[in-house]
């Protein structure tokens, strides 16, 4: 059945993500986009509603299996919005947009059916999708191009772990400005080492410090620039474990924290509790204490959380390919990206 076939794609994507074959959020974004392209161009659907239903199924599948994976679901939600927009453009109704009077007096029955079929909906969607793909591919460069506006000479910048976006950002700035970078090694996977080696190869003066040295170094740091896994609806972050402590240290010394994020990382969900299972997940404890430690392991519990929640007060600036925004503006960005009906799925 065609539905099952489509789910197959998603299941493949899910298992790849779970097993770590697809790792970068950028790669996940590209894969999702490919999946959607395939669905729109080759899938069996007659009108917008069926298409949206299929996409909603996929979103449900992903969020059930990988509750913390935001990129794929966000892109699919965005496409849902695109479909609605295209539909609106295509249909002649409501061409004048929503005036205040209509918003107040309009009622539920006015909802669009989305079941009218339009001949060129498919083509228009595909065009739009191609544009979106280009946007995805160039977003990293766009963010990096803003580097010179934020970094001046002889600055000391702190960053955590590894992030493709931050790396390009810093390397772009290094071409014309001279500055130093301090990389926190980010236990327990020590990704910071790779980042530091890569930055040093581009002739940036780099220093590696362990996680415990952040508070000590923070007094000398001018800016903190980090990447993140996803951005929550309130402007907070779901970032790699350890970033919260670093953001707190930055706040203590009044050092600005700048987060580089792509638009597809913005999630419409809020964080209601810090309960472990809903917000965070834990990986193998072998990264914290080796398996060969011996009988000690039978008697202790070991945690290895993957994510950290950073509240919006600790973040100074979000930088996306469209420019910089304060955390308090995130709700507005969300409304541009997603349709309110698609927030809770």
């Amino acid at each position: 059945m065609p539905e099952n076939e489509n789910l197959t794609d998603v299941i493949k994507l899910i298992s790849d993500i779970r097993h770590g074959k697809v790792f970068n959020s950028y790669e996940i974004a590209l894969r999702t986009e490919q999946l959607l392209e395939k669905l729109i161009s080759e899938g069996q659907w007659n009108n917008a509603r069926e298409l949206m239903q299929q996409i909603k199924d996929k979103i449900r599948q992903v969020s059930q299996s990988l509750p913390l994976e935001a990129t794929a679901t966000n892109i699919m939600r965005h496409i849902l919005k695109v479909i609605r927009e295209e539909f609106d453009l295509g249909s002649e109704k409501k061409a004048e947009g929503q005036s205040l009077h209509q918003i107040v007096t309009g009622d539920q029955s006015d909802e669009l059916d989305y079941s009218e079929s339009h001949g060129n909906l498919r083509n228009r969607l595909l065009d739009h999708l191609t544009e979106y793909k280009v946007e995805l591919e160039t977003s990293t460069e766009n963010i990096a191009a803003q580097a010179l506006e934020h970094i001046h000479t002889n600055e000391i910048i702190l960053t955590v772990g590894i992030s493709n976006t931050v790396e390009k950002f810093l390397k772009h700035a290094a071409k014309q400005r001279k500055f130093q970078v301090i990389v926190v090694e980010a236990a327990p996977l020590y990704r910071g080492h790779k980042m530091a080696a890569s930055l040093a190869n581009s002739n940036i003066q780099t220093t590696v410090i362990p996680d415990s040295g952040v508070f000590a170094m923070m007094s000398r740091v001018n800016k903190v620039i980090i990447g993140t896994h996803s951005v929550m609806a309130d402007g907070g972050l779901r970032a790699a474990s350890g970033v919260h402590a670093i953001a707190l240290a930055a706040k203590h010394y009044s050092v600005p924290v700048m987060v580089l994020s792509h638009m597809y990382k913005l999630t419409p969900t809020y964080v209601c509790s810090h309960e472990k299972d809903t917000f965070n997940m834990c990986a193998s404890p072998a990264n914290v204490i080796p398996y060969s430690t011996g009988p000690l392991l039978n008697k202790i519990t070991v945690y290895n959380p993957i994510f950290d929640y950073v509240p919006p007060e600790l973040v100074t600036l979000f930088i996306s390919h469209q420019g910089g925004n304060a955390p308090s503006y995130v709700y507005r960005l969300l409304s541009e990206l997603y349709h309110p009906d698609d927030y809770e799925l």
Partner: peptide, 15 residues
């Protein structure tokens, strides 16, 4: 009865 974490998980256990 002990639990063991690394520095990065401080926010996680502080609760």
């Amino acid at each position: 009865n002990c639990t063991y974490v690394q520095m990065n998980a401080v926010s996680y256990v502080m609760n």
